[in-house]
């Protein structure tokens, strides 16, 4: 394995860099589509890059009693989704990896932890209300993603990401009941995983004024926003990798392009749903997620017994 360290590193950093660069573009496309849906002209597609650039140079206000924690939270927030990208086993190919599905779930959670730390370190009433909501959502959503991976793991008899991606969730028959049920569950829960409307009550500009992020400005806000964009890309890619197989056999450039196109399609769907829904209240959302979680556990039960 030691011979593979440089390979893991090189590929990981490459993939992380790609996500980092592509994430604002995805956000820009989202904004543009939203604008079209709202019969507006909308900002240019590359506006998010300008926004981030502008924020990088703005004054950095720190209201927390422990500003170091605020800084740490900002860095951690961006690193978490990028580390997931870095662990990605490569499109279709079996690449070396530093971890497996369980690590993936925890790394995705780490992004949430960073937001929580950010909110706690800022410590204003609204931030704390926001992190309480964020944590409640995470408590239900993080297991949901884990369950989806476990369903795939049950079918694939493995926890390596390379074995789980590319349709393993549908079992050897290609259309297992548990895989389809899980697909349904995740389609309904996906907006929440990327914290877009109708499940953006953590931030809820019109209620608690962006919650955990409200005390952030300048470069820290840039990092946190960038992290949010990266999380959208990574989560959408995860959906594609788990539930939308096909195209891997096309070889190097085409497989990657097909994968990117599918990811873009998922982002498009997220955008359309986000633009056409009312924000849920946190209690409504929790009840909704609870139902999803039970359905997920049922799917896992099916998968355990081979269905």
């Amino acid at each position: 394995m030691s011979g593979h360290l440089h390979e893991i590193l090189a590929r990981g950093l490459l993939q992380a860099g790609a996500v980092l660069l592509a994430a604002p573009l995805a956000e820009g496309v989202m904004r543009k589509i939203t604008a079209v849906l709202q019969s507006r002209q909308g900002p240019p597609v590359i506006q998010p890059y300008y926004d981030l650039l502008k924020l990088m140079g703005k004054e950095d206000l720190e209201c927390g009693e422990s500003p170091w924690m605020q800084r740490l939270a900002g860095w951690l927030a961006l690193v978490a989704p990028l580390s997931v990208a870095a662990l990605w086993p490569g499109i279709g190919g079996q690449g070396p990896a530093a971890g497996d599905a369980i690590l993936l779930v925890y790394l995705l959670t780490l992004g949430g932890v960073a937001t929580l730390l950010a909110g706690l370190a800022a410590g204003s009433t609204y931030s704390l209300l926001g992190i309480s909501r964020e944590m409640m959502t995470m408590m239900v959503l993080e297991p949901l993603l884990a369950i989806a991976l476990l369903v795939a793991a049950c079918h694939a008899d493995s926890l390596q990401l390379a074995d789980l991606f590319g349709g393993a969730i549908y079992g050897r028959s290609g259309h297992s009941g548990s895989g389809l049920l899980m697909l349904g569950v995740l389609v309904f829960a996906f907006q929440a995983m990327v914290s877009r409307r109708p499940f953006d009550m953590t931030e809820a500009e019109s209620e608690i004024m962006e919650g955990p992020l409200m005390e952030y400005s300048g470069p820290k806000l840039a990092l946190l926003q960038w992290a949010r964009m990266a999380r959208l890309v990574v989560s959408s890619a995860l959906m594609v990798a788990l539930f939308w197989p096909g195209g891997a056999q096309l070889g190097f450039p085409w497989a990657a392009l097909v994968f990117a196109a599918k990811t873009a399609a998922v982002i498009l769907a997220v955008t359309v749903i986000a633009a056409t829904h009312v924000r849920y209240r946190v209690d409504q959302a929790i009840r909704y997620f609870g139902g999803m979680l039970l359905a997920g556990l049922a799917a896992l039960g099916l998968a355990c017994f081979g269905f």
Partner: peptide, 24 residues
Amino acid sequence: PLVIGAILLSRMGASARRAVSPWL
């Protein structure tokens, strides 16, 4: 390297830091 990258990114704009009290 990712953490180092994030730190460098946040320093890129050389923005000034200022301590404030929380917004109420």
